[in-house]
Design a protein around this nucleic acid. Structure first.
Lengths: 340, 340
DNA sequence: ATCTTTTAATTAAACATTTTAAGGACGCTC
DNA sequence: GAGCGTCCTTAAAATGTTTAATTAAAAGAT
C-alpha cells in the first residue's frame, strides 16, 4: 500500500487549501463549480478514501445506526431487519447489527460499543429483563433510541410492533369458528410484553366464546422450529385431547406440524394448527400454514423512518404504535372432528 | 444530557494529566496501581464514554471488522455468521454485517464504507461477478481480507470453504448405492465456484458409476426454499421420470419435498431427496432430510481465527482451505423403486 | 554524599477532518 | 478612483485520543 491519501494530499497536488477540498467534496456552494470538478476528479484519480472517523470527530455525526434484536437468524427478525436495511440504505447510513440472545449483558455491551463509535441512533428489540437504566443508556448519552417488535414496561421510548393480543385472537376465533373447543396454545413466554399479550388474546377469545380456559392446554416455552417439533409429543399426549393448536409463531407451528406428521397423524386434517408472523416459509410448508400476518416489514420500515426523522430534527410522538395483524387462511386448519 | 465527559474532564477533576488518565484506562504498567484505581473509579462515577473515533484517529485501529455475505437471512450464512460472531466477540472486536445480494455495487459500497470507518479487516463471501480490482480493494488500502464459503478465480486471498465437489459426490453416491439411476440435480448456478464445483461433483459421481449424464436432468436456478418448492412441478414433469434428486442445499430440498407432497407423492418414499449443508431444519423436516454436513460453523470459526491471527501479525498461508463434508443419512432417501 | 537506576507523571506533537471568520480579487456604480 | 457587493478561497481553531520524549522524584549503590 502506497502513501495514505488525505485531503491535504489532494490540496497539495492541486496547489490549493484543504478547506477548499473539504468543501468541494461535500458539494458546498461556497466553492466554484470548475474547482469542485477538478478536485473531485483528482480525488478519484488518487484513490482518496474519506476518513469518517476524523470527520465525525469534528462533526459528532458518524452515520452509524445500531440495531440489536434477539436473534438475526430468526426469520421474524430477519424480515424486520431487511426492511430497516433498505430504509437506512436510502439515506446513506451504515448499520451495525447485533444479537443479544436475551442477554442483558450482551445488549449493554453493544449499546456501549455503539456509543463509543459515536452511533447516531439505535433501534432495539429489548432483551428480556432489561433494567430501566439500560433502556435509558442510549438516550442519556444523546443517542436516540427506538423500540421494535417488543415494548418495555416503564419505558416511554417510541415503539413499533404488531398488536399481539388482537392478532392471536384472530387466530383463536378462526379455530373456534371451525368448531374447535379444545384449543391448545403452544410456545411463548410470559417474560416479554409480546408473550403476555398473546396469551391474553387467546384467553380473551376463548372467554368471549364462553369456552372454559384450561391452563393445562398451555405449553409455554417453544419459540423455534426445533421447539415446536419437540413439543408435539407433549401436545399429543395431553389428556384433554385438543383438536387444534394456536402456535407462538410460524416456526413453532411448522415444527409442531412436522412432529405431528412424524407421529403418524395428518396436520391440518387431524389437528388444526395456526402460526403467527406469516413468514415466507408459511405459504410453502406442508400443509400450507394458516397464520396471522404481523407486518414485520411494515414495523421495520416505520421504526427506521421514525429514527431517521428524529435524527433530521423532527420530534415524532413517543408511545406505542401498533400494526393491525391480519388473518391468512390456508390449509393447516380445517373444521372440527374428534380425535380418535 | 449533561456536558460530554472526556479524558480531560477526568484529568481535571483529579488534578492530573490526560496522558496519565489515558494510560491508566488502558491498564498501562507506566502508571501506579493506586492512581489507576482512582482514575477508573472516577471514570465510572462520571459516566465516561471512551471515544473510539478519536482513539482510532490516532492509532489507526478501529476494532471494527466487516462481514459481507450474500444474504444474512439465509440460514447457511447465518450459521457461518454465528461462528464468526462468537470468535470475534472473544477478542473485543465489533463486527459490521452486510448483505450484498450478489450486487457488485452494494458489495463495493460496503467495502468503501468499511475503509472509511477504518475497518481492521473484512471477511467476505464475494458477490457473483466481483471484478478482480474489487477483490483487491480492501487489501490495497491496507485492510486484510479473508474469503469464506465461496472462492474467487484469480484471487489468492486466504479462503475457507467446504469441499463442494467431494460433498456433492457423497450425496450422489449415496443415491446410486440405493439403486437410483435417474438422478436429477436441482438448483444452483454456474456463476459461483460453489455452483460449478457441485455440478462437477455430481457429474463425476455419475460417470464413475457409468451412468450417462443427461443435461436434461439438471434444473439450475433455485437456491431458496421457495425456489425448490416451485421447481417441484418442473421436476415431476421431466420426461426422464427421475426417482431421486440431489438438491443444491437443504432449503431447496425442503421446498422440493413440500412441492412433491403438494402434488400427492410421498417424498422420501416415492422420490428420494438429498439436501446440502445440514441446517438445523434438516433434522426436523418431514421426512427428516438426508443431507451433507458442510461445516459452516467450522468454516466461520476458521475464517475469523485466520483474520484475527493476521491482525495480530502472524502471516498465515494464503490459498484455499477446504473442509471435508460428511454424509448425514436420514429418512428422505430410500431404495430405488420405479415411478408409476 | 554522590551517582545511577527505577518509577511515576507530564508535555507536546501528532492523527484527518470541518467550519467560522476573515481576506483578496474582481467588477460595478457613481 | 473610492466605495461596495459578490464570489471564491484560506487561515486557524477545534474535535478527543495516544505516545515518544522528557522531567521529577524516589530508591539503591558505592
Amino acid at each position: 500500500m502506497a502513501q495514505k491519501i488525505k485531503l491535504s494530499t489532494i490540496a497539495e497536488t492541486l496547489g490549493i487549501s484543504t478547506a477548499t477540498v473539504s468543501l468541494a467534496l461535500r458539494d458546498s456552494p461556497l466553492v466554484a463549480g470548475a474547482t469542485r470538478d477538478k478536485i473531485k476528479e483528482q480525488a478519484r484519480a488518487l484513490g482518496y478514501i474519506y476518513n469518517r472517523r476524523a470527520a465525525s470527530l469534528r462533526t459528532s455525526r458518524s452515520g452509524i445506526i445500531g440495531v440489536v434484536v434477539h436473534d438475526i437468524m430468526n426469520p421474524f427478525y430477519g424480515e424486520i431487519l431487511k426492511a430497516i436495511e433498505s430504509e437506512l440504505d436510502r439515506s446513506r447510513h451504515t448499520f451495525i447489527l447485533s444479537n443479544h440472545y436475551d442477554s442483558v449483558e450482551k445488549q449493554r455491551t453493544f449499546i456501549e460499543t455503539l456509543l463509543q463509535l459515536g452511533g447516531d441512533g439505535v433501534i432495539m428489540s429489548p432483551a428480556i429483563g432489561t433494567p430501566p437504566e439500560d433502556m435509558q443508556l442510549a438516550e442519556d448519552n444523546g443517542m436516540p433510541a427506538i423500540l421494535v417488535a417488543r415494548s418495555m414496561d416503564g419505558s416511554d421510548l417510541p415503539t413499533y410492533r404488531g398488536d399481539d393480543s388482537y392478532g392471536i385472537s384472530l387466530a383463536t376465533n378462526h379455530l373456534i369458528g371451525l368448531g374447535h373447543r379444545s384449543i391448545a396454545m403452544i410456545g411463548g413466554t410470559d417474560q416479554t410484553s409480546t408473550g403476555r399479550d398473546r396469551y391474553q388474546g387467546y384467553v380473551n377469545a376463548l372467554r368471549k366464546a364462553e369456552i372454559e380456559v384450561d391452563p393445562g392446554l398451555r405449553i409455554p416455552g417453544p419459540r423455534s422450529m426445533q421447539g415446536g417439533f419437540e413439543a408435539a409429543v407433549h401436545f399429543l399426549s395431553l389428556p384433554q385431547k385438543p383438536t387444534a393448536a394456536v402456535c407462538w409463531n410460524d416456526l413453532v407451528a411448522i415444527g409442531l406440524m412436522n412432529g405431528i406428521a412424524r407421529a403418524g397423524l395428518v396436520p391440518g386434517t387431524d389437528i388444526s394448527v395456526t402460526g403467527y408472523d406469516d413468514l415466507e416459509e408459511a405459504s410453502i410448508s406442508m400443509p400450507a400454514l394458516t397464520t396471522v400476518w404481523n407486518g414485520q416489514a411494515e414495523v421495520g420500515r416505520l421504526a427506521a423512518r421514525a429514527l431517521l426523522d428524529r435524527l433530521a430534527g423532527s420530534h415524532e410522538p413517543d408511545g406505542i404504535h401498533l400494526i393491525k395483524p391480519e388473518m391468512r387462511i390456508r390449509q393447516s386448519t380445517s373444521p372440527y372432528r374428534p380425535r380418535s
